[in-house]
Design a binder for these strands. Structure first.
Lengths: 193, 193
DNA sequence: TTAACTCGTTCACTTAAGTTAAGAAATGAT
DNA sequence: ATCATTTCTTAACTTAAGTGAACGAGTTAA
């Protein structure tokens, strides 16, 4: 499991054995059961998440209805808005599947980063990269219809459609569950001819 | 004009006079006329933009139609996806108004950042903050209807609705110009009673 | 000044998403 | 194993966005 982490890190910076040991000594790995809520609306936590295995999601509860807005799977990192800005969270974070997560908190990072400046560099590269990637995703979302978004997802993250409940996928695509059902039926009908 | 920049920077790190001078000596400020294209699709540039005055936008051209996906106004920073990943750009960047911009390129930043580690720290803070903020914007977009998005924009960036052409706003809201017109008429009708 | 364009709006029509409701299928809990 | 709950699908109806076309206002160019 640690290898997955170090392989990932090695894409950005190279670590010495000492640095690897220091990182492991922090006891960051956690197994979390499906359905567990990692962050609640209104909560002021300092925890960031890195998915080693499994899938987590961010969701809002609006008028009693869950609205899932993002999924994070293997090698995805999530630092909640509330952590960056140190304000109560607008959304929930929950486990879609049993997960193995790396959970770090801000205080810890400050310490690590001052000891190992490499981490600062890596974090910056990571957030720059994620920012640019997310901009593209947002752009694509804006210029696509729900149907195009679904087909696009089918191409880019086919695993999600298998591992995630439909009603969560629907709000992720910006539509209602019934519309997703209909849209899928429509596509199937078309492909038959 | 430089004060605007230094005021902005001071929110993240404090600069010595030497550092300020070093920054100014780089000759980063540029006046750019409305309509100027700063980055073209397919181009591999290394330039990042920081808006001191005016408004720039990112847009795609799809089947000959412009699709505007983002606006950047005073104190907004834009590092194109293509710069981060060093690939040809998928989109254009253009000036909506006459602008005063800070334009930096990657090579330059590497040099500056190694001389002044503070800049690395600031850049990381900035991209973390922007990433988190953009996540929220994306979430709001997903869970809103076009009408809610428009009303939301009216609250949060009322200036945009004044300074930007309707058809550019429309794709920014994920709809066609005709739909925006209709939607506005609908809202006006409602407010009359 | 006129002609050509762009921009915003409106209209009629088409298509697709929202809404409400019902029922089948799968999942979980006791 | 059974019951309850959640999830997914289908259907009928409503509402809103997409499409194609036309028009006037404002701008630019000849």
């Amino acid at each position: 499991m640690q290898d997955i982490l170090f392989d990932f890190i090695s894409k950005y910076v190279s670590l010495t054995e000492d640095e690897k040991k220091a990182l492991l000594s922090l006891d960051l790995f956690h197994s979390v059961k499906k359905g567990t809520v990692l962050l609640k609306e209104g909560q002021k936590s300092k925890e960031s998440f890195f998915v080693l295995k499994g899938c987590i999601r961010t969701f809002y509860i609006i008028d009693g209805e869950e609205k899932t807005t993002a999924f994070y799977t293997e090698l995805d990192a999530l630092t909640p808005h509330s952590v960056v800005k140190n304000v109560p969270s607008d959304y929930f974070i929950g486990c879609v599947e049993d997960c193995i997560l790396l959970i770090s908190n801000t205080d810890m990072s400050v310490e690590v980063n001052s000891k190992f400046p490499k981490f600062d560099i890596m974090c910056r590269m990571l957030s720059e990269e994620l920012l640019a990637k997310q901009q593209i995703d947002f752009d694509e979302f804006k210029i696509s219809s729900p149907e195009q978004r679904y087909l696009n997802l089918l191409q880019k993250r086919p695993d999600l459609i298998q591992r995630v409940p439909q009603h969560q996928l629907a709000s992720y695509l910006g539509i209602k569950p019934q519309s997703l059902s209909r849209l899928r039926a429509r596509i199937l009908e078309k492909s038959k001819g």
